[in-house]
Design a protein around this nucleic acid. Structure first.
Lengths: 322, 322
DNA sequence: GTCTATATGCTCTAATTGAGTATATAGGAG
DNA sequence: CTCCTATATACTCAATTAGAGCATATAGAC
């Protein structure tokens, strides 16, 4: 079972920012074609807490001083770090989400912004249902669902078909934008993620030809990324985290565009204004922006003191027409 | 800095059940007066995933086969495991929440049910504001807030007074039932939790006499417990997890009592019925229960298939009159 | 001045929520 | 058997919120 020399804790950061209306994450490209998140092992002698360890690694690798940071999940599965071979220590990876405003383009260390939807292209519904779903994913998932659940050791009592319905909105069900992780994991389990092939998963043998379904990542980093997207999409609706992605002053439409970029779908403009304004999340700065091409838009700033008020609402709101 | 021999990952389970209208957790009492959660180190050679490791430890220590299990958070702080001394490996602890229906009284291994509110007594508002808040906690926290924030290395820019307002509803603010962890951590930081004294925290010196504010626990287990309560109280409102605590059939009032036990406050009965019923979460079994002392109550069962429907609502609902 | 594009304001309806009143049906006291 | 009490269950009503769309305001371009 390979030389087992102990446990290592890996700290991984999905550092999210929005540029040109597109959500981006900070990745390091190491030349072997597999992008990676900023990553480093937890060293308890140097790092008083996990968070501090993460911040240190990110500072070291990207020159960035993180602000908003949130722990996501700890993954300990065997077999998700196949590149390392069987010899190293077992790696337990702790995923983090960080949100930044500034554009780290100038940062050292070879880290750069990459489009988030490049890794999970089926998650962007802003221009309607992504073609990759209809053309590539759905037909293959249907074939997968038609197979018996032999090698499934899933503890849920759901059939593959039911899981497709829930995760991928297959039989008339609604698309749940928050199920990002469940979708990625299902694709991995079905052998349709490149990482599954790398890790030597059995299900891959079923496919004669594997399309590239989103850019893969090193280790289990795409899983961390999917977890980050799930969490952020959910949290948006009940905590005012979105402002961690915005500059000090912004128009309401800029705010809306950023929310849409994260959620991956369009919102109803007038209702969005109403919601944000009478949730008391923002206050006008008094200035206007004339960059809009029409009537100048009032500039707003985030009211930091809402963090002191009770169940600070965040930006809920269901989808609107395209 | 003590002999550092590596990292160990501890798996801790807050196993919750409701008995006689009181939420309980499974604890092991080891005789030294410090209760502990079922606990064991993650052994990657034996456990394919963290979850499996946790289930194994719980089975071994309590004879219980867990159903619903959910990972909570991973804590890596130095200095929260003081009993172990400085010599052992650094311990990173992964907390889990598990929900059970059956009463594990007969289980082997010395584990037993203990009242959840015995550890966090300020969280039970079902009979009005707990006296321990007014009599013990609030006056001391006010004294603590009056001190300068010298040794605070908190990354938030909130003053102690603002934090009290938010966490403990001090200056007319509302009590947020979900801030269980924040409250416990604040008490720890203020030196008011017995664990803070055990861990040699500086703030403890400020107090001449420390009252027992809830029963303490071994290691950072009370923190895990507080995290579990936070998570469960939050999740209740948007996922139908509550049914993991209920028998197969139940009356709506029994359901309500269990929700109230978890949330720690009363709900409006008629509205609760309406909500649960037209969320489609339950269906009548056809039988009735005559145990109620009045008109017999219809028995219901959880509609397992709502898990297949979209954003399965759970049991939201704000508080009602006492 | 008109056209176009965007920002912002307002209306209308349907649900949802919070609170309370009214009715139904058991067991027990007399 | 009847009344009383306790609980379950049904229904009402006002306030708020959410989804959708129409209307008006104000810039730059021609």
């Amino acid at each position: 079972m390979g030389g087992q020399s102990g446990i290592e804790i890996g700290l991984n950061a999905a550092i999210v920012g929005v540029r040109d209306g597109q959500p981006h994450i900070l990745v390091t490209r190491e030349g072997n074609g597999w992008d990676a998140l900023p990553y480093g092992p937890f060293a308890p002698l140097d790092h008083r807490t996990l968070d501090i360890g993460l911040r240190n690694w990110v500072r070291e690798q990207t020159g960035l001083e993180l602000g908003y940071v949130e722990q996501l999940y700890t993954f300990g599965d065997r077999g998700r770090h196949a590149q390392r071979g069987d010899t190293g220590p077992h790696i337990v990876s702790v995923g983090y989400l960080a949100l930044i405003t500034e554009d780290p383009a100038a940062g050292p260390g070879g880290a750069s912004f990459a489009r988030w939807f490049g890794y999970l292209p089926w998650e962007d519904w802003r221009h309607g249902k992504p073609a990759i779903l209809t053309d590539e994913i759905e037909p293959r998932l249907k074939r997968w669902a038609a197979r018996p659940d032999q090698d499934d050791t899933h503890d849920l009592v759901l059939t593959r078909r039911e899981r497709l319905r829930i995760c991928f909105a297959m039989e008339g069900a609604d698309w749940d934008e928050e199920k990002v992780l469940e979708r990625y994991e299902l694709l991995y389990e079905a052998g349709l993620a490149a990482e599954a092939k790398r890790d030597g998963r059995e299900a891959v043998k079923f496919w004669d030809k594997l399309p590239q379904l989103g850019r893969p990542m090193q280790f289990d980093h795409r899983r961390v990324l999917a977890t980050a997207m799930s969490r952020l999409r959910g949290k948006l609706k009940y905590r005012p985290v979105i402002f961690e992605l915005l500059p000090d002053s912004f128009t309401l439409f800029e705010l809306q565009k950023i929310v849409e970029a994260i959620l991956g779908h369009h919102l109803h403009k007038q209702n969005f204004r109403r919601l944000v304004e009478n949730a008391g999340l923002v206050e006008p700065t008094g200035d206007v922006s004339r960059q809009t091409g029409g009537r100048p838009a009032k500039l707003f700033r985030f009211r930091r003191d809402v963090l002191l008020e009770r169940p600070s609402t965040g930006v809920r709101m269901k989808g609107g027409p395209g």
